[in-house]
Amino acid sequence: MTKKTGAAFPYVLLVLVAAPFITMYVGFFLRAFGEGPQLGIFPERFGLSNFSFLWEPITWGLAETTIWVALANTILFASVSGAVVTVVCMLAGYAVSRIEFKGKNTFLVLQLFLHAVPGQILLIAIFFLLYYLHLLHKIPGIALARASLEIPLGVWMTKGFFDAIPWDVERAAMIDGCTRLQVWYKIFLPLVKPGVAAVFIWGFLFAWHDFIYVYTLLPGTAKLMSTLIQSLLATEVIDYGYLAAMSLLYMLPPLTLFVLLQRALLKVPIFGGKGI
């Protein structure tokens, strides 16, 4: 008996710790699909009226927008950011993995140091940088800035992928007539394909759920999902059902990507994201 109690103890503890979170998630789903007044987390009846934003315009300050505009903008923002992270990291990762140059170690240490700097600290500097480059208030410009935050860790990540490729394969390619760049795109990129996918998704996801950069650097000019949801919270009366339904939609693309490509993603250490 005591043995059984002992074995059950960790499970009881884990359930207790997990219970509040599970309750919140269940409540969130119920709320999104619920209608009418709530009894605790349970709604009076179920329906799809909370999803009215899918076919109706949404108020945005004094103007109006639609969910589809916000969704398209967010996809553009996250895709550009993901693409920039991928291209830069794949090139830089190859260089630091395979080419000897002066200050390489310093460069690598600096990347880790940069990664440790919170992104918010850079906001003002980036604001002016984008202003002088005439990129302020433009989605690709902000996507570029967002991408730069993930590049330091991404370089380490891609270096790891390239480190795993034997030197002999690279030497064989160079004997066969490849230049360095040809080795990179004819041999190395195909070999680290899952890595390429993983880095892209990683860059995409961090941009997708970004709020502070979008909020500060794209004020009102372009509507993205994160700022749209924030604007729903910033009203005096919050319609939680509506908010939950829209958040559910906001969650769907990353969730789908993650499910589809989880095997590729498992190869990437998704630790220490900026979380802003």
Binding site: P166, D168, V169, R171, A172, A173, M174, I175, D176, G177, C178, T179, I187, P190, L191
Partner: peptide, 20 residues
Amino acid sequence: LPPRLRNIGMVFQSYALYPH
């Protein structure tokens, strides 16, 4: 002269074939 311009063939211990 870089390896690619030396017109040599090489077989490696690990064979180093391109897996893809």
